[in-house]
């Protein structure tokens, strides 16, 4: 059951910054927590961003009135993992348990791969298309610079994500296999650590921020603002989504892998 806090029903729109002070939680009031019995449709009504989460788990829309647990069962998913990810994405202050089971790993990696696929084959090409439309609509000789810049940015994202798929994910899956080996002497010594892989995502974020600034502040006024706005909406959305995506790697996947490394080292 979702306990829907009455706060949610107060101001529908955040128009003036005054409204934000009405969002103060009265003492002892908690945010809504998603449980196995929560109806998936209710959750999506409350937080549309979770649409992205369920599609990355491979859950198709059209699930009727099914609860999270029922949908997970129908799709062969680990309900507790799905709940964890839904809650983390729903509320950034949701506290992740310290010890997470290693049987989350395979599904998490699949989830992250699906995320990569979404960014690389849907989201980024879509934004590029919007930029092309923007260029067509606005006869500014410099607008192609924005497209080039976005391409540079895209290349960095592609590079980063394919690096993860080529090296980090196989490393983690290898660890998982090793941890299943009973005899310690069969195990390979650890050559890497997950912390060696954690590179900061800040370089990529840098370009995304720059592009937003260029479109908002610096690029001269254009006759058509529709596509310019649309691009900006998409860039903010992308930024938010990438942060969540990276957060999942840093807050959930990495801690499990660290535990796994310790386990293998300790026994090996």
């Amino acid at each position: 059951m979702i306990r829907k806090p009455d706060i949610l029903s107060v101001p529908k729109k955040i128009s003036a910054s005054f409204d934000i002070y009405n969002y103060l939680i009265p003492s002892g009031h908690s945010e809504f927590i998603i449980t196995g019995e929560s109806k998936l449709v209710d959750i999506i009504q409350l937080n549309q961003r979770l649409l992205l989460v369920i599609s990355r788990f491979g859950i198709s829309l059209g699930f009727g009135d099914k609860s999270v647990a029922e949908v997970c069962k129908a799709n062969g998913l680990n309900t507790s993992l799905v709940l964890l990810v839904l809650n983390v994405f729903n509320s950034h202050s949701y506290s992740v348990p310290e010890l997470l089971p290693k049987n989350y790993i395979a599904e998490l990696i699949q989830y992250l791969k699906n995320g990569h696929k979404y960014f690389l084959t849907s989201k980024l090409p879509y934004i590029e298309e919007l930029i092309n439309r923007f260029i067509e609509k606005n006869d500014n000789p410099n607008s192609y610079l924005l497209r080039n810049f976005f391409k540079e940015y895209t290349n960095e994202v592609v590079e980063h994500m394919s690096l993860e798929e080529r090296t980090v994910f196989p490393y983690i899956l290898g660890l998982l296999q090793q941890s299943d080996v009973e005899k310690a002497d069969v195990r390979q010594p650890l050559t890497y650590k997950i912390d060696d892989f954690i590179d900061n995502h800040s370089n990529i974020e840098e370009k995304l921020d720059d592009l937003k600034q260029l479109l908002i502040k610096h690029f001269p006024p254009t006759p058509d603002q529709f596509f310019r706005n649309l691009i900006l909406f998409e860039l903010f959305d992308l930024d938010y989504d990438l942060n969540d995506h990276n957060g999942l790697e840093e807050r959930i996947l990495t801690p499990i892998v660290r535990t796994l490394e310790k386990e293998i080292k300790g026994n090996g």
């Binding site: 610079l145 810049f149 370009k207 921020d209 600034q213 260029l214 502040k217 610096h218």
Partner: peptide, 25 residues
């Protein structure tokens, strides 16, 4: 001041503001 960090971002700023020509770029 500009909110731009990357070199390519600054390059676009420079072209837009005619600090360099597009040919230079």
């Amino acid at each position: 001041k500009l909110g731009i960090k990357s070199v390519s971002g600054l390059t676009i700023y420079a072209v837009i503001n005619k600090l360099i020509g597009a040919e230079d770029f």
